[in-house]
Simulated assay, not measured.
Amino acid sequence: MAVRKAATIKQVEQTVLAMDPTDPALVVFGVFLDDSPWLSCLGGGLDADTYFVTATARSVHFHQVRTRGVGQRPGGLVHSFDRDDTARRMGEVRRQLLWSSFPFALPGHDAPTRMHVRRAWWKEFARFTADLDAAAARR
């Protein structure tokens, strides 16, 4: 069970590699969906949906987070999008003191869902958004 961030990333990378050995993970970060990020930061938002987002050269995958004890592991695949579709679904990133947030249009939802990225994942999230921006500029 992964407790450290590096171990968690490794587990998610292995899960993605098992899905398609020809398309390894380039970047992994965590997001949570909660109406009140402050409540989540204080430990009260335990019911928040939490996902690992993994970008590969061809796709972006959302895996549910499984929590056991003090660690987190990747669970089942919830959504998978091609890179161009991901860029179209993602709205403007807003930076806050403890988390960043962005709207993302998930299938089956009437309005975009606000996703929050904790500060611990900002470096990976910055790589993800920079890569999406660069891909959009090449089009």
Rank of each mutant, 00 (worst) to 15 (best):
R139V: 08
A137M: 11
V31N: 05
Q14S: 12
R68N: 11
C41N: 12
F62K: 03
D85F: 00
R95D: 13
S59P: 01
A126E: 08
S59V: 05
P74G: 03
A25G: 06
A137T: 05
T86I: 10
S40M: 05
V70W: 08
G69W: 05
T113Q: 15
V3T: 15
G30E: 13
R94Y: 09
L98E: 11
G75I: 01
S36N: 15
D82R: 06
S40D: 11
R73F: 00
P74I: 01
I9W: 03
D85N: 07
T50A: 13
M90S: 05
F52T: 01
Q72V: 03
W122I: 05
F125Q: 15
H61L: 10
A48G: 00
R68T: 11
S36F: 07
A87H: 02
R73Q: 12
A111M: 12
V27R: 02
V78S: 14
V78I: 09
W122Q: 15
T22D: 15
D49E: 15
E124K: 12
L39M: 09
D133R: 13
Y51G: 04
L132P: 00
A6L: 06
G108E: 12
A55W: 03
S100R: 11
V60Q: 02
R58I: 00
F104W: 14
E124C: 04
L97V: 15
F81P: 00
A2H: 06
L39R: 09
L106E: 07
K123P: 00
L26T: 00
W121M: 05
M90R: 10
Q11D: 09
P112S: 05
V53H: 00
R66C: 05
P37Q: 02
V53R: 02
T8Q: 14
L42S: 09
A87V: 04
T86D: 04
P21L: 09
L97K: 10
S100M: 11
V117M: 04
V28N: 07
A130L: 09
V3S: 14
A18Y: 01
F52Q: 01
A7I: 02
D47N: 12
S80R: 14
G91W: 13
A18G: 07
G45P: 01
L46V: 13
A7N: 08
G44W: 03
A111E: 13
R83N: 08
P21H: 04
K5M: 04
F29P: 02
R114A: 03
T50D: 05
P112D: 07
E92C: 06
T67Q: 14
W122T: 11
F81R: 08
A25K: 01
V53I: 15
G45I: 10
A55C: 03
G43E: 08
S80I: 09
P24I: 00
L42P: 07
S40G: 07
R58A: 03
T86S: 02
D82Q: 07
A2V: 03
V16Q: 00
D34Q: 08
